[in-house]
Nucleic acid binder design. Sequence first.
RNA 1: GGCGCCAUCGUCUAUCGGUUAGGACAUUAGAUUUUCAAUCUAAGAAGAGGGGUUCAACUCCCCUUGGCGCUACCA
Length: 499
Amino acid sequence: MLVKTRFAPSPTGFLHVGGLRTALFAYLLAKKNNGTFLLRIEDTDQARLMPGSMESMLNMLHWAGITIDEGVDVEQNKIIQKGELGPYIQSERLEIYQKYTAELIAKGHAYYCFCTKERLDEVRKFQELNKLPTGYDGHCRDIKSDEAKTRLKNNETSVIRLKMPREGVTMFTDLVRGQVEFKNSLIDDQVLMKSDGFPTYHLAVVVDDHLMKISHIIRGEEWLSSTPKHVILYQMFGWEAPHFVHLPLLVNCDKKKLSKRHDDVSVNDYKAKGYLPEALINFIAFLGWNPGTEREIFTFKELEQEFSLEKVSKNPAVFNLEKLDWFNQQYLRSLSREELVARAKPFLTAQFPDYANCNPRVKNELDIWLGDLFALEQERATTLVNLVTELGFIFKTPNPKIVVEMIVWKKSTPEETKKILQELVGLLTAISEESWTATEIDPCLRAWLESSGYGVGNVYWPMRVALSGQKNSPGPTEIAMVLGKKNTILRLSTAVENL
RNA sequence: GGCGCCAUCGUCUAUCGGUUAGGACAUUAGAUUUUCAAUCUAAGAAGAGGGGUUCAACUCCCCUUGGCGCUACCA
């Protein structure tokens, strides 16, 4: 079977993590079956359009690793369209929708409605007051075509509504939920064409998915209850309906649908916080799907191979940030020095623009130094922003402030601490710049520790605080390596003076 | 209110009639230790309730309850 899936966002804002999940599942299903992944833009609500939204969403999809085979795409921040079945932006397809609504009207499956906003509001109010099911009352349903024509000629504003059958039931099979059925009498005479000449979602999806030969409609569960309208439309057009796949909703910790207002939902935010795309994708893939094994870390390629609709679950999934952090940590750790430098550098530049000034290396091998620098936090950090922030003490000038209560180890005294640090300065000063490596310094420190009998805590603790100015930090010798000889001695001496 | 979907540890989930109900995140304890983190070990933690069907039900059916979604000339 030929599989063709699509992701069809409305360009009204930023890409939502829920949207990313829908896009991912659609993409994975296509890839798994050697099919095509199409992207269509649904910009039929002119009032809600946001300039730049299309570019932003597409860029985020690329960032996440999702590539588009057909339809709308972005190249160098310019929107392009590729494929034979376009245009792929709904606002450019208006004549197509007109043609198909004309067909529906001719067949008697749709009708012009001249009801005003005011009348509609009144009808609704009455229904609500009397606890009746709300919906259009069919006021214009039986207007004769002659009358409609003259009213149209008189420029009366109108919409086109679907003439839902009043009898029977509409059923369809959802690939994750099984058979679902709705009574036709309860389904509204949905507006198909708005008075501004734009189609509604319901008309546009059906027409486009058919014309673009989509095999599987993958979308969020919020669309489940409007699916019968779409099924009816397929029947009225005499088209074969594609497969429907309604994904469980992504919810927040209050079990509510993720919303822009209350939750961090934009993919841009996660990128900005320093989450790695592969971690976000891995995490999101496991929201409502699992591979049936106990392994959790999957590369994008592996997801493409393993994905299957049978393993998609029916229940909503909480977007659990703690698990995301864990995934991100796993991926962060797996990065090579070079990759880590490449990924973290932009974040470092943003927070510490003058970071290069702190590079102690004689030969000025900046990226090698950055590798050592980032490695200090690689095992500890959850995000790239977190990693860079935790390195802030490196860039403190002139030197970190020393708090006496902090620098003195447990039962030691300021006097003893001062003495130890003084000796340490002497010891380190004797080491040449060329020998300023962990392999040289570690044995040296250890030998001194043994001969002096000071005890590990008495030496390493003040050294840590003197170098970092804080209680929590990477190991003191590691810091010394990154700081370089000069800065290390300087910081240690400053601490001695303050004691 | 109407309609629909859903229901296993706090969270993501495994189980496709027979299991000591498994794993991961988080939590707690211990080990290690130059703090925190990391690491290792261990522990606690679940089938909403009630009826059926069956030799046997978390698993199939029904009801109740609960949660969520939809109910626009928004998608």
